[in-house]
């Protein structure tokens, strides 16, 4: 008789099969009452501040001027939005993501925001390059003010993960408190984080 050694996969699954308890009831997510409107927008603005960012309301037409004023030293701006055009960067030329090192400012379109934690969902489509939201020195996210949901339960109702190869919630600038609990912005990624709510 020839013994075929079990693969690790078989061994693990067999042990689980032998050791698992009686099947529990699957968890049915209860529907949570949804809040809408002005309150959650207010909460969202407050939470973006709480997590170390800035959130302002601006008419689409004035965004470009405002960014010039707010980021006077940004020489290389990489934008994935229609309101702002890239400056100092030819987006088509970037085939290797390491070429994005040195981007002063990235401007991205957010899909929706979450009031309870100030997070904004951005999928690969809005990033152009997956590393862009992390490698830029500063980050600006444009967000339709009507696209804010109350909490993370509502957030996942908005996303079909089977259709998103890569997506991330971003809440504030890159930060760390690893040295004696002192909060420092700009640990590895963007040093600042601005959200512009558009009409």
């Amino acid at each position: 008789m020839v013994l075929i050694p079990m693969t690790d996969r078989e061994q693990i699954l067999n042990t689980i099969g032998a050791n698992k308890p009686e099947e529990a009831q699957p968890f049915i997510m209860p529907t949570v009452q949804k809040e809408k409107g002005v309150t959650i927008e207010k909460q969202f603005i407050q939470m973006v501040g709480h997590v170390g960012g800035v959130c302002i309301r601006q008419h689409s037409k004035q965004i470009s001027d405002m960014i010039t004023v707010r980021y006077p030293h940004a020489k290389k701006i990489y934008s994935c939005t229609k309101e702002i055009s890239s400056i100092g960067f030819n987006s088509e030329n970037i085939s290797n993501p390491i070429d994005l090192n040195g981007v002063d400012l990235a401007v991205l379109q957010g899909c929706f925001g979450v009031a309870e934690n100030g997070a904004i969902w951005i999928s690969e489509e809005e990033m152009m390059h997956r590393v862009l939201p992390y490698i830029a020195e500063h980050l600006v996210i444009l967000l339709d003010h009507n696209s804010i949901v109350a909490n993370m339960h509502d957030a996942y109702e908005q996303i079909d993960l089977t259709q998103v190869p890569y997506g991330t919630f971003i809440s504030g600038p890159s930060k760390t408190a690893d040295i004696e609990q002192t909060l420092v912005m700009g640990a590895q990624g963007p040093r600042s984080h601005m959200v512009i709510l558009t009409d």
């Binding site: 939470m47 709480h50 997590v51 979450v114 309870e116 934690n117 100030g118 997070a119 997956r130 992390y134 993370m152 993960l161 089977t162 998103v164 190869p165 890569y166 997506g167 991330t168 919630f169 971003i170 809440s171 504030g172 600038p173 890159s174 930060k175 408190a177 990624g189």
Partner: peptide, 17 residues
């Protein structure tokens, strides 16, 4: 973990780049 409402980055990986 830290009293934050969420971590700064919460990334969802479904397909390789």
């Amino acid at each position: 973990a830290t009293g934050q409402p969420i971590t700064t980055y919460t990334s969802h990986f479904h397909k390789p780049r």
